[in-house]
């Protein structure tokens, strides 16, 4: 086995062992995700609780984008009763899942895994991904027009 093949095997091994989490959402992703949350039904009450787990998104950006909500940093396991939880991994999403809680992933892979309800991409254009299984498990739905303009998985 030559050096290149060894490096490739090591790289694959490292990727497989790495926790399934993406980079922290940037401000634009947070803004788009916050706007997407406006299409969730049932609607969030005023002052709804929103939790941001470490590495998921800048808390200040989430608070800025969701000015009507009560945003706080916290652990996924302690997000009971929250309207939305911004998570950094599928494992966190699974801990946060509960009735009425919308999990917002920082990576589309979290939606692909059926763990996060929603994830967004902003480049090259705004694209919104929703896991039907996760949404159903959370007991939430989305505006019917919105659903026709997004990618459901």
């Amino acid at each position: 086995m030559n050096t290149q093949k060894i490096m490739a095997v090591l790289a694959v091994g490292l990727l497989a062992a790495w926790p399934a989490s993406g980079a922290e959402m940037d401000a634009k992703q947070v803004t788009i995700a916050a706007k997407a949350l406006g299409f969730v039904t049932p609607k969030a009450p005023a002052g709804a609780k929103v939790v941001v787990t470490p590495g998921a998104a800048p808390v200040a950006a989430v608070q800025s984008a969701l000015s009507a909500a009560s945003v706080a940093a916290g652990d996924a396991g302690g997000a009971a009763g929250a309207f939305a939880v911004f998570v950094a991994s599928a494992d966190e999403a699974k801990k946060a899942n509960g009735k009425g809680t919308v999990t917002v992933g920082n990576d589309v892979a979290c939606v692909d895994a059926g763990a996060c309800v929603i994830a967004v991409e902003t480049t090259p254009k705004v694209t919104i991904y929703v896991s039907k299984a996760a949404a159903s498990a959370a007991g939430v739905d989305f505006d019917p027009n919105f659903k026709m303009m997004i990618t459901e998985k």
């Binding site: 916050a34 949350l37 406006g38 299409f39 609607k43 005023a46 984008a65 000015s67 009507a68 909500a69």
Partner: peptide, 8 residues
């Protein structure tokens, strides 16, 4: 802003 976006 977002969370209170209005009616269904």
């Amino acid at each position: 802003m977002a969370l209170a976006q209005g009616a269904m």
